[in-house]
Each structure stands twice: as structure tokens, then as C-alpha cells.
Amino acid sequence: MSAIPVNAYLLLALVLFCIGLFGALTKKNTVIVLISIELMLNAVNINLVAFSKYGINPGITGQIFSLFTITVAAAEAAVGLAILIALYRNRSTVQIDEMNTMKH
């Protein structure tokens, strides 16, 4: 039905994952770091959905797993934001490189 090979989806997911990873490891604003992690999760979701259509054993399971991932990601975003606000209250910064209490 489709002329698009599964490799194209995987490649796209890889590019997005790399962008998300780079953002998560280099950006200074905590909010951006969090959203970059969401982007990485999305890249994984693309893989899951692609494998639910193409693959050795295609089926609906991939989509269901991507739903689970989305749910966990939403929960993670909520908790992450709560932590961010708590941190901001304590140290009045959102710069991730100033949150170095793990050093001590």
C-alpha cells in the first residue's frame, strides 16, 4: 500500500532522537531540557508506531505501547514541572548548571 520504506521512519526517529538528546544535554533552561526529553520519547513513539504497521510481526500492540509512553510522558512532565517550581522557589533559578547541589 505504501512505497515508503520503514527505514525512512526509523531514520526520521533517529534524527529527532539525536536532536532531543543534544538539547537535553546542552540546553541550560530546565524547561527546555524537560521538553527535549519529551521529544526523545516522541522519537521512540514513532518507532513503536512504525513497527506496529511494518515489521516481522505487525499488530496493534505497538500503538498501545505508544499510548502508554505518552501517558508516562505526561505524568513525567507534570512531576518535572512541580519539581522545577519547587526548585525555583528554593534557589530562584531555572538554569540547570546552577542546580549543582549533588556536588555537595
Binding site: 537535553a24 544535554l25 546542552t26 531540557v33 540547570i96 548548571d97 542546580m99 549543582n100 547541589t101 549533588m102 556536588k103 555537595h104
Partner: peptide
């Protein structure tokens, strides 16, 4: 051991 999470990552 800088406490920088990103560096660890």
C-alpha cells in the same frame, strides 16, 4: 563530580 546533571548524562 561537578553536580552538573548534564555533564553526568
Amino acid at each position: 563530580q561537578s553536580g552538573q546533571v548534564q555533564t553526568y548524562g
